[in-house]
Design a protein around this nucleic acid. Structure first.
Lengths: 119, 119
DNA sequence: CTTCCATATGAATAGTTGATCATATAATAT
DNA sequence: ATATTATATGATCAACTATTCATATGGAAG
């Protein structure tokens, strides 16, 4: 038998709550989805990905395009790599980054379109 | 004539940078897009919106569904209201929240689908 | 009006995170 | 080897944020 030690929830509509609760997804899954959104939810990372959607770029070029330090860019690229949103290939001393798959492109487009429509 | 006081950017590929730079959007716009993504980039807010995509719910029901405090939910609802992602209507003492428009639903679906495919 | 209940909100706090600085690594050239 | 250049990364710091706690607001009922 369940017992809430939080003494609230007097007003709960049991049927509605039960209904929605049954339709909720795994907590773990929500976490993954939001974690994915989070990658796009920071303007520096979004700009990096947008730039890469135009063409593959090395770190230095990205820094120039965004007018930011190489270090800052590298750190964000690391985050994006960790989420499998970008990949890279070496070419001599340089490292060229590119978007990991079409999902990234369509996610950006989706966000851009929806934001435009909201204006 | 431009002069960077940051003494780096030796490796920049001018043509590539110029090309991509010309294709970049307004800084302000990138900020808005990422700000929108950010709303979905936090699991509590995402869960709230997902729950509301199933049916309109009052604050107390949301708290019950997510098993979180009423205060925490209210604070996040405030954030969502601020970004015009949810709206509400009063019914007596209670306040029913619902998603502001179809954009919210499709954004959630989009994120969910893309995350599924990545597994 | 007063009480009760649903919700909102300000303040405080802990955890997260993005940028910088300094430094390390890795590849190329000399 | 050593020097140079491109990138990566650890540490630090400041800014931001999600939750909690305490309290306020606002509607309904007595």
């Amino acid at each position: 038998m369940e017992e809430k030690d939080t003494c609230e929830f007097i007003c709960v509509h049991e049927d509605a709550v039960k209904d929605v609760k049954s339709k909720m997804l795994e907590d773990e899954f929500f976490f993954e989805v939001s974690d994915n959104f989070k990658a796009f939810g920071e303007s520096t990372r979004l700009k990096i990905m947008y730039a890469l959607s135009q063409r593959d770029l090395c770190v230095c070029d990205l820094a120039a395009v965004l007018d930011m330090s190489q270090s800052a860019i590298s750190h964000q690229l690391r985050v994006l790599r960790g989420k499998n949103l970008v990949k890279f290939r070496r070419k001599g001393k340089m490292v060229y980054y590119y978007l990991a798959d079409e999902h990234v492109v369509s996610m950006i487009e989706f966000g851009v379109e929806h934001t435009k429509e909201k204006l």
